[in-house]
């Protein structure tokens, strides 16, 4: 018997699908084993030529492509309408959505529109006798819960970097079903009236292999200039705690944590950061954490591979010098 399809909602960034979208395909293939197909819904404006084949290479069987100016910039009313229409037609068993700025708005609304339920920010999937169990973080990162949903379609948003994309199979082919948008522009009630993109210079935090982060212990904006310097030297990105952002010591876009960004670098420097659960929720899965704190009992050391009890400003200056020596 052929099971119901798994519907994956992909997001496009520039010419291709986002990394998070490709990671969703890994989850989808897991769910579709043996039976159903993996169908990707791709909404956008002037969607690039290569998008379909890239999705196919990472696990998509079919792509429903709706290319229309109404989908850019992202407005949830338009997306929810179109995705609900696609879901009503395809009757998927599961809908997977990126846990992105757009995804966290689309998925809950889609769940209510389709009279089902949603698990947000999932970081793990287990199949128990075919029943999906989703692991997600809660209590500001202090706890994890494993949940299941028994109405269909099951909807889940999947956290970035929780799964690896499948190795690309360039030979995979895909059926692309291009269709016109069915959204009536008059039904887009909440509208974007002004939008400016930030100037992104250097490595993006979410993709960085090395992240240098500072907290309250850095003592001021000057410390964050040093953070920026070290991050640049290491080819990485700079981050911060919410407290540091609130104090205006660094840009808000640097915030890592429960209400900021999630990063999964190989190496994470935590300078003058206490290690609150809400901060660790955004960096706890880093490969190795180097923590620098004057307080040997600071919570951060419980998550650290390397611990240094020192003044973080003095240490940061010394580390920059040392790195310049080994990497002139």
């Amino acid at each position: 018997m052929i099971g119901p399809p798994v519907l994956v909602v992909a997001e496009i960034d520039g010419a291709g699908p986002t990394a998070n979208s490709l990671e969703l395909l890994t989850v989808a293939r897991n769910l579709a084993t043996g039976s159903g197909r993996v169908v990707v819904a791709c909404l956008g404006t002037r969607i690039g030529e290569g998008v379909g084949s890239e999705l196919a290479a990472h696990g998509a069987d079919a792509v429903v492509m709706v290319d229309d100016p109404i989908f850019t910039p992202f407005q949830a009313d338009a997306w929810v309408h179109e995705l609900a229409a696609i879901a009503t037609e395809l009757k998927p068993g599961t809908i997977l959505v990126p846990h992105s700025l757009a995804g966290v708005e689309v998925a809950p609304r889609l769940a209510f529109r389709l009279d089902t339920a949603v698990a947000t920010g999932c970081v793990g999937l287990d199949l128990v006798d075919g029943d999906a169990r989703w692991t997600r973080s809660c209590y500001g990162g202090n706890a994890r819960e494993v949940v299941s949903i028994h109405t269909t379609p099951v909807i889940a948003t999947i956290a970035a970097r929780a799964f690896d994309p499948l190795p690309a199979n360039q030979a995979a082919s895909v059926a692309i079903d291009r269709r016109p948008a069915t959204v009536d522009p008059g039904n887009v009630r909440a509208r974007v009236i002004a939008k400016s993109a930030a100037m992104t210079t250097g490595v993006r935090l979410e993709n960085a292999k090395v992240v240098v982060s500072g907290g309250h212990g850095l003592g001021g904006a000057a410390g964050f200039e040093q953070v920026r310097t070290l991050a640049a030297l290491l080819g990485g990105a700079a981050g911060a705690t919410r407290v540091a952002c609130d104090l205006g010591w660094c840009p808000r876009a640097w915030q890592i944590g429960q209400s900021g960004k999630t990063v999964v670098p190989d190496l994470y420097f935590a300078l003058g950061i206490s290690g609150a659960a809400q901060h660790m929720a955004g960096c706890g899965n880093a490969g190795a954490i180097v923590a620098v704190n004057t307080d040997p009992d600071a919570e951060i050391f419980k998550s650290a591979r390397f611990g240094i009890v020192a003044d973080c400003n003095e240490f940061l200056a010394a580390l920059i010098e040392e790195i310049r020596k080994v990497r002139p």
Partner: peptide, 11 residues
């Protein structure tokens, strides 16, 4: 409060 850039919406 979008982390990158500015955005204003109306409804």
């Amino acid at each position: 409060a979008v982390s990158e850039g500015e955005e204003t919406m109306a409804a």
